[in-house]
């Protein structure tokens, strides 16, 4: 099996700084504060498409723009899944189908899906961390024969916070050789499943770091700062090799093309060199948390 190698600085944005107008063709309400926006270019123009894990920038025409991972895409559409947390995302949530937005991208590197072929996969996400993880998971499911056992460990602080419930509780339950493990951080009257933080839940599940073929399982983890800290610590404790643990780093961004300055961690620009890094690489960075 090849060593998992994450490529960096490999993006070629088709829309670098100046966006295009796109139409919102579908809005899916995922949770009380999360919606997915499906965008299509008007006049049948081809949309830019991303690699799994790449991101785009979506903006309100006449207001701000923000960075979102491309959470799903089809032949002529892309989708962003947006949690309502600030000014721009509030305005996005007020949009209706048929409205227009600005969109540019794709930016950043992507999950090393080719190097992961033949391995067992463990996907770990918390709350709104699932969309970036799903972009990789979805790829594996579309190429199911290329990957071994797939497990997903997903947690939210409340039942409402869980996104993509249809896939979690229906669609993915029927996938061959796949385990879906969902926990909530707090008791909820609508929930009779596991109540646990991610790290102790991982410990309890004890998913073998070597994988069923002994080649080393790949773990993909994405969530808030505390999930990242405790989750990666737990994985290393369980014996996952740092080069087999993949994550995405987050920083505030404006340009998306490595010019505006703010998203650096040491000499790396997260928009260009990232967002995907292995824990082995993160360990070598001088970083602010």
């Amino acid at each position: 099996m090849p060593k998992i190698t994450v490529q960096h600085g490999c993006a070629k944005a088709q829309l670098a700084l100046v966006p295009k107008v796109a139409k919102v063709i579908k809005i899916t309400v995922e949770t009380p504060d999360v919606k997915s926006f499906r965008l299509q270019m008007p006049n049948g123009e081809a949309s830019f498409l991303g690699e799994p894990g790449q991101f785009g920038i979506m903006g309100i025409i006449g207001s701000g723009e923000c960075v979102f991972v491309i959470s799903a895409q089809g032949e002529d559409w892309i989708e962003f899944t947006v949690k309502r947390v600030g000014q721009v995302t509030e305005m996005l949530h007020a949009l209706s189908e048929g409205d227009e937005v600005f969109v540019r991208g794709p930016y950043g590197n992507w999950w090393p899906y080719e190097d992961c072929r033949g391995r067992d996969m463990l996907f770990i996400a918390g709350g709104i961390g699932l969309p970036p993880v799903r972009s990789f998971l979805q790829y594996c499911l579309e190429h199911r024969a290329d990957y071994g056992r797939i497990d997903l460990v997903y947690s939210g602080s409340t039942y409402d916070e869980l996104v993509f419930k249809h896939q979690l509780f229906d669609e993915w339950k029927t996938v061959d050789n796949m385990g879906v493990h969902v926990s909530l951080y707090h008791e909820d009257s609508r929930w009779d499943g596991e109540v646990a933080y991610t790290a102790p839940y991982l410990e309890k599940l004890a998913i073998d770091p070597m994988g069923s073929n002994g080649e080393g399982r790949v773990a993909v983890i994405c969530g808030g700062p505390s999930l990242y800290r405790t989750g990666t610590k737990e994985l290393l404790k369980e014996g996952y090799a740092p080069e087999n643990v993949l994550t995405t780093l987050e920083m505030r961004m404006k340009c998306g093309i490595g010019k505006c300055g703010r998203c650096n961690i040491g000499g790396k620009f997260i928009c260009l060199d990232g967002p995907v890094f292995s824990l082995e690489e993160v360990a070598q960075m001088n970083r602010d948390e």
């Binding site: 006449g62 723009e65 404006k254 340009c255 505006c260 300055g261």
Partner: peptide, 28 residues
Amino acid sequence: CFDISQENKMKEGVRFRCWDSCMFSEYT
């Protein structure tokens, strides 16, 4: 370093970039 922002007038607007500073707390 630069920031990107906009200014609107009626139904039109201009998106511009302007110098920013890593010394400011909002920067990151």
